[in-house]
């Protein structure tokens, strides 16, 4: 069944894209307690930053780095200027969800006059084709996969072997205790927004590169897949998000091969609903968020 082998190849690529996005999203949630629904819009904004550079003749990979930097700075400012003041005032979780939703709408509508609502795509040669049996990938897709693996290993190393990672885990587990132990939680949280923002920006560019074209309206789809992967793996758990990305990436591409490409997001959603029905306790478990998993 060559179509399924080909779909498996696409699945590898989309799981890489989803993993980058979902790990960033879930770390924001796990450490800062913030369900950032503006995540998809930040991804799209970063994709547009890379697009404007790409239009000027810069390679998309340099554009991707720029997108990552933009995502980091943007997310950092978003937290400092908007989210943190609300959290200091003691806004409820639900209130924060509404705030982030409002932010996502604002970003989308600010983007609208700047880039217009038309779909655009990167001018980048897809590169030559590499075959592994029935799996056919372009060089660009290989780069995306390698990049995702490198980023995941990097996140793992960060959380496991560095002082910053330890501080992040401590902050996630118990912020006030962490502060009492002398961990500068404010600086840790700033670092979290920078790192997850960079992941978000890079994810936006690779997601845009992986789909034929993108537009402002793509933000919703980006957000949902990241959200589904993050929730599937257990909200706040980076390793869970990686597993969730693998499942959702493969499932969506295999259904696209077996059924219809339009229903990719619907499948992601169906998985999400199943998890919410069958394992809501997994969703509710906020404790141990970011504790080293296995």
């Amino acid at each position: 069944m060559t179509i399924f082998e080909a779909a498996f190849g696409f699945g590898l690529v989309s799981m890489s894209v989803i993993a980058i996005a979902a790990v960033g999203f879930t770390m924001q949630f796990g450490i800062t307690n913030m369900i950032n629904l503006a995540y998809g819009e930040v991804m799209v904004s970063s994709a547009y930053v890379a697009y404007s550079l790409n239009r000027a003749g810069v390679s998309i990979w340099i554009g991707m780095i720029a997108g990552g930097i933009f995502g980091a700075v943007f997310s950092f400012l978003l937290n400092r200027v908007v989210y943190a003041p609300f959290q200091r005032k003691g806004t409820s979780y639900l209130g924060m969800v509404i705030v982030s939703l409002a932010i996502s709408l604002m970003i989308a509508n600010i983007l609208l006059p700047i880039v217009s609502y038309n779909s655009v795509s990167y001018a980048e040669h897809a590169g030559s084709i590499i075959r592994f049996g029935g799996v056919v990938l372009t060089v660009n897709q290989m780069i995306i996969i390698v990049l995702a693996v490198a980023l995941m290993v990097g996140i793992h190393a960060l959380l496991r072997y560095t002082r910053l990672g330890k501080a992040m885990r401590a902050t996630a587990a118990n912020p006030s205790l962490a502060r009492n132990c002398g961990i500068p939680t404010q600086r840790v949280i700033d670092m979290v927004w920078l790192i997850t923002g960079a992941l978000c920006g890079v994810a936006g560019v690779v997601a845009a590169l992986n789909s034929d074209s993108f537009a402002i309206a793509s933000g919703g789809g980006f957000l949902i897949t990241a959200l589904a992967a993050a929730v599937l793996g257990g909200a706040g758990q980076p390793y869970g998000a990686m597993i969730g990305a693998v499942i959702i990436g493969l499932m969506t591409e295999l259904t696209a091969a077996a059924w219809s490409a339009e229903y990719k997001e619907v499948v992601a959603f169906a998985i999400l609903v199943l998890v919410m029905v069958l394992r809501p306790q997994g969703l509710l478990a906020k404790r141990g968020a970011l504790a080293a998993a296995g």
């Binding site: 509404i98 619907v266 919410m276 809501p280």
Partner: peptide, 26 residues
């Protein structure tokens, strides 16, 4: 039945938002 029974309120909000986006896609 899916959303209101067990989920915490912020998850309810997200599940309903996702429902809204997906219903439109379908």
């Amino acid at each position: 039945l899916v959303v209101l029974r067990k989920l915490r309120s912020d998850y309810q909000a997200i599940a309903l938002l996702v429902t809204s986006i997906i219903a439109n896609t379908v």
